[in-house]
Nucleic acid binder design. Sequence first.
DNA 1: GCGCGTACATTTATCTGATTAATTAGTCTT
DNA 2: AAGACTAATTAATCAGATAAATGTACGCGC
Lengths: 247, 247
Amino acid sequence: MRILASELTLDGAGRPELGRNLTYGLLDNLGRAIVTGRFETEPFPTEAELAKQHNVSRSVTREAVKMLTAKGLLSARPRQGTVVQPTTSWNLFDTDVLRWLLERQFSVDLLKQFNQLRIAIEPEAAALAARFGDEAELRRITDGLERMEAAEKGLDDTLDADIAFHVAILRASSNPFYFQFRDVVTTALRTSIRFTNRIKGRTASVADHAAVRDAILARNPDAARTAMRDLIGDVLELIDEAEGAKA
Amino acid sequence: MRILASELTLDGAGRPELGRNLTYGLLDNLGRAIVTGRFETEPFPTEAELAKQHNVSRSVTREAVKMLTAKGLLSARPRQGTVVQPTTSWNLFDTDVLRWLLERQFSVDLLKQFNQLRIAIEPEAAALAARFGDEAELRRITDGLERMEAAEKGLDDTLDADIAFHVAILRASSNPFYFQFRDVVTTALRTSIRFTNRIKGRTASVADHAAVRDAILARNPDAARTAMRDLIGDVLELIDEAEGAKA
DNA sequence: GCGCGTACATTTATCTGATTAATTAGTCTT
DNA sequence: AAGACTAATTAATCAGATAAATGTACGCGC
């Protein structure tokens, strides 16, 4: 019996598979399985076994494995087979890896690590934005802030506006490496909100964000850096408190 | 005539191809070609054309393209073909992408962007190391510093020692996201040395590095942050001066 | 002439099965 | 005991056929 791709857009349980085609579907399944640690106890299957288990051809299998290799999760060699790499070689700034990492479970520890990273990146990004951001880039920052104000009146989504603001600053840093963090920051914010809102009824304060914007528009790097640092520092404190309360 | 892989370990010019097999060889060639901007003027070839041009099968071609897709450089869709993605979607923290980016040409601008990133990451990493670094991790930092001292007497390589020191701090931050920057920092240092040594006869001062180590061992996050910031700030100033001199 | 849908062409996606290469483990020789 | 040969395993590569997706162009009806 020949299995057609169109018949596989739904998996056994009837849920839609992630990805536009078989390769991306397998990529997603394997990625999640690896990150979840399924292959810490059992060995990673050989190419032939994988193909049989997922009812796809070897081509699809090999291409999915190659993509996971490119993201640092796997390594394949003849005779040795395909093996999961240590987490230190995973590309944590890859969108897919990041998503799999969060889907497996909500971890306060991971959220903390996100924000420890943000407190390094974003204050410096704000400083760079103040120094080098051009007209259009600064405009985006203001737009983001205005969306936050509108959200307070229920005219926009709070979280989306918050994300737009922070990403605008990364972009305005005019350094492509900083802009790479847009996924991490987006993910961190989406995750944070689920968490911090549960702890306190506290929304990201528009006033604090406005302070960052003002410093950047005033072309004052030091003030921008400090203002952003305070902003994220608050989040980090909140997480620490919550963690301490549990321990 | 059948072309065997073993015959292709050397390319036409007799240079060894990068990568252990055909797929990795093609990956490297295409990666460099994309980063160099070859396909800004001409369209990216179709899968069939690529295979013919490089004398490999379509499987090899497809797998190489899939890996480049995983790294954000390409996107493939039926009928539309394979197209190069805008640089904003490239994964700049991928080791391969980073290497291609540097191989194409030495750019002061890129070096500057590297160090603008380092000045965000490394001071904070030092602060985290002071707070959370365990015995073994701190030991590595001291080891790195001792190698730098040995290098001054010609007993070790200056650059390798310097890299070991900085990477040890990233590791000691105990945050996997920070440790991800080991490639960027390594690359930045290897590139910096080519550059800064040409400008001034200035070696990375062991005393400044020792200050960072001491602050971390003393479990003083603020001092560690400041010391590291000064260290990298000096490099950045050097680059700015050189850039200004040219302009 | 304008919209709309259908037929067609192009390119990636997928499958299959055979062959080759690399590497490890074992065995045999000396 | 050391080294060389052999076998077995697994990924790597090739070839060519078929399917699916999607943009383009054509033609039909209004």
